[in-house]
Design a protein around this nucleic acid. Sequence first.
DNA 1: GAGCTTATACGAAATATTTCGTAGCTATTC
DNA 2: GAATAGCTACGAAATATTTCGTATAAGCTC
Lengths: 141, 141
Amino acid sequence: MSKAPPPKPTDSELEILHVLWQHGPATVRAINDHLSQRRQAEVGYTTTLKILQLMLEKALVRRDDADRSHVYRAAVREQETQGLLLDKFVDATFGGSAMKLVMQALGSRPTSADELAQIRRLLNDIEIQNSTPNSDDDDHA
Amino acid sequence: MSKAPPPKPTDSELEILHVLWQHGPATVRAINDHLSQRRQAEVGYTTTLKILQLMLEKALVRRDDADRSHVYRAAVREQETQGLLLDKFVDATFGGSAMKLVMQALGSRPTSADELAQIRRLLNDIEIQNSTPNSDDDDHA
DNA sequence: GAGCTTATACGAAATATTTCGTAGCTATTC
DNA sequence: GAATAGCTACGAAATATTTCGTATAAGCTC
């Protein structure tokens, strides 16, 4: 066990991660431009820089400082991070019941037939996996 | 048009709301006891009191101060509050896609056959509602 | 009614997060 | 090589949240 899991990103950090996940490695300048677009207002350049520096300490990003303009890239995977945040959120908001959350998410918002079908497929997959005793499956979570 | 929606509760506030939703109206003392149990550590009495006072200002709770020990009760509904928080969370974490969230919630955690069945029932209900033009439905949110 | 217990109110310290100003370095341009 | 433009580092103000200490009042017991 050599890896300490990176901590839960804050809201701002998450926003930056979204940019990195979506567009790949980028300079502070580029990231800052994206952020300024996402929000309606201009974001201070040094603000973005500072957050990236903090994220570097937390090991949420890595950077290549070979060139004068450092290039940052996400050091955590999108799915894993979302899963981590989801866990916390389910605990805090739905008392740990992921079911409740799913019901709420599906029940209280419009969901297209297409999306419903997609979920059905997922349910089928899960049930198949559940019923299969477990062959030597190579694709661990 | 007369009601300004109560603001998003903070984590601590949400924890208190859970207690109130679960146990109904209660005194500060009782709420504090529940909180101390939920967490592993003792929570300062005045800490709980203070948060409740702030929640009162935000209209997240109401209180009956007829007796010396004031009795607090939730002023926001569990489902509505969870829905509100869910919206914010979906935006921040899944870029607004509730589908992604559901897939993640179902895909990356063990889900029992029973729960899966429950979701299927929900899907059926939703599809029926989608196809039904819309009768006079009496159960408004 | 003095003393103890239990309340509430309130200010403010402690902590976490976000934001930005300023200093200083490096490359480029003339 | 001086001026300029763009970059990083860093301290610290601004904001939000959590926590608690202290003052003070109300009720209870003897």
